[in-house]
Simulated scan of single mutants.
Amino acid sequence: MTSIDVRNLTKEYAGRPPKRAVDGLTFSVEPGRVTGFLGPNGAGKSTTMRLVLGLDRPTSGTATVGGRPYTALDEPLRTVGALLDAQAAHGSRTARNHLRALAASHRIPDRRVDEVLAGTGLAGAARRRVRTFSLGMRQRLGIAAALLGDPAVLLLDEPANGLDPEGIVWIRELLRGLAAEGRTVLVSSHLMNETALFADHLVVLGRGRLLADVPMREFIDAHSHARVRVRTGDPVRLRATLLAKGWAVGDAPDEAGRWVVEGASAEEIGAVTAREGIPVFELADERASLEQAYLALTSEEAEHSAAASRPRSSALEV
């Protein structure tokens, strides 16, 4: 197995008082699916990734890949590919030479360098110096480095940062494809709408603690309130019927002419309208988006949050 296993992981940094960045974390990242790693700034996501990769030492607990610490892997690049910092490549090297240096350290043939350059869209820029790259190109180079050893495990921190729309679609398809091949994929991101399109499972942190470790659909359902939108040719009769059945219905339809019914499912509303002979043109359950569910869970966990702004008073106001 090539799962990432975190057990009772804690990391404290010296200070008065000490700063606990990771607080007793326990979770596993399984192969064959993309796991989204979410949390506000300061939640401990990057620290956890660094602990998994042996870049920091835990205060207590363990983090292993395939049952072994990263530092015990013989050729780690062939087991784990990681992108934590797109700026890590030496600016004076060409993209190809940067990857060739990494390949040589793990006895990876040069042909693999050319394969990952082509696969990440950088073949045409292979002989350019890294310092001339845009942020998006540096991200692609970092992903190429992560893929270099054809690893079974991928850890990527904000891989879509700096990518253009085409690049965002590309990274989404890449992540899904890697998981479909049976690899273990852990992706940290602040882009909720994008995460909803590529992740199968979620691990959510807040102030260093585990808040959720659940499948994507289950997470959204847990933070959704049952609600239905329905559009009809007989709005007055529809509203009266639904109110008589005890459902909460808005005072007026939305801008598209749909009534919002609280605490109901589309199946229930459909059964009632069919029985009463009320014509229905549109009927759909409304669920929370990943962003809404995430904010509902983490609203009290953000380390830095802005106060709601108040409109500035007019100079003529008395």
Results as ranks from 00 to 15, higher is better:
residue 203 V to H: 11
residue 99 L to A: 05
residue 35 T to N: 02
residue 178 L to V: 01
residue 54 G to A: 12
residue 177 G to E: 08
residue 302 A to Q: 15
residue 254 D to Q: 01
residue 41 N to V: 00
residue 226 A to N: 02
residue 108 I to Y: 07
residue 151 P to K: 02
residue 287 R to C: 07
residue 130 V to E: 15
residue 70 Y to E: 06
residue 72 A to G: 12
residue 17 P to Q: 01
residue 24 G to M: 01
residue 231 R to W: 09
residue 86 A to N: 00
residue 181 E to Y: 05
residue 180 A to V: 03
residue 257 G to T: 04
residue 218 E to P: 14
residue 148 L to I: 06
residue 216 M to D: 14
residue 167 G to E: 13
residue 2 T to Q: 12
residue 116 V to Q: 01
residue 150 D to F: 10
residue 68 R to M: 11
residue 313 S to N: 12
residue 301 E to K: 00
residue 77 L to T: 07
residue 224 S to W: 05
residue 130 V to M: 04
residue 236 V to C: 02
residue 181 E to Q: 15
residue 9 L to R: 10
residue 289 S to D: 03
residue 94 T to S: 11
residue 305 S to T: 11
residue 209 R to H: 10
residue 249 V to K: 09
residue 2 T to R: 14
residue 94 T to K: 04
residue 185 V to K: 06
residue 114 D to K: 10
residue 312 R to L: 15
residue 15 G to A: 05
residue 138 R to D: 09
residue 133 F to C: 03
residue 40 P to F: 07
residue 114 D to F: 10
residue 30 E to F: 13
residue 242 L to V: 06
residue 93 R to V: 06
residue 183 R to W: 08
residue 173 E to L: 09
residue 169 V to Q: 09
residue 234 D to N: 14
residue 152 A to S: 14
residue 244 A to T: 13
residue 128 R to M: 04
residue 145 A to G: 14
residue 284 A to T: 12
residue 109 P to S: 14
residue 64 T to K: 06
residue 112 R to M: 04
residue 234 D to P: 00
residue 309 S to R: 15
residue 313 S to F: 05
residue 25 L to N: 01
residue 70 Y to L: 01
residue 179 A to F: 03
residue 194 E to P: 04
residue 115 E to M: 02
residue 47 T to I: 04
residue 10 T to G: 07
residue 83 L to D: 13
residue 8 N to F: 10
residue 306 A to N: 09
residue 100 R to Q: 08
residue 293 A to T: 08
residue 291 E to S: 08
residue 99 L to W: 01
residue 237 R to N: 02
residue 31 P to R: 10
residue 259 W to S: 10
residue 19 K to A: 14
residue 2 T to H: 15
residue 221 D to T: 12
residue 301 E to V: 05
residue 225 H to G: 09
residue 106 H to L: 11
residue 85 D to V: 06
residue 115 E to K: 07
residue 41 N to S: 08
residue 186 L to V: 03
residue 269 I to T: 05
residue 207 R to Y: 01
residue 201 H to R: 14
residue 121 G to E: 11
residue 293 A to M: 12
residue 174 L to G: 00
residue 184 T to I: 06
residue 284 A to W: 03
residue 182 G to Y: 04
residue 109 P to A: 14
residue 172 R to N: 12
residue 188 S to R: 12
residue 77 L to C: 12
residue 27 F to Q: 14
residue 97 N to M: 09
residue 69 P to G: 02
residue 14 A to G: 13
residue 243 L to K: 10
residue 135 L to N: 00
residue 115 E to P: 10
residue 31 P to V: 14
residue 198 F to N: 06
residue 254 D to L: 04
residue 85 D to L: 05
residue 301 E to Q: 13
residue 170 W to I: 06
residue 249 V to A: 02
residue 222 A to M: 05
residue 241 T to W: 02
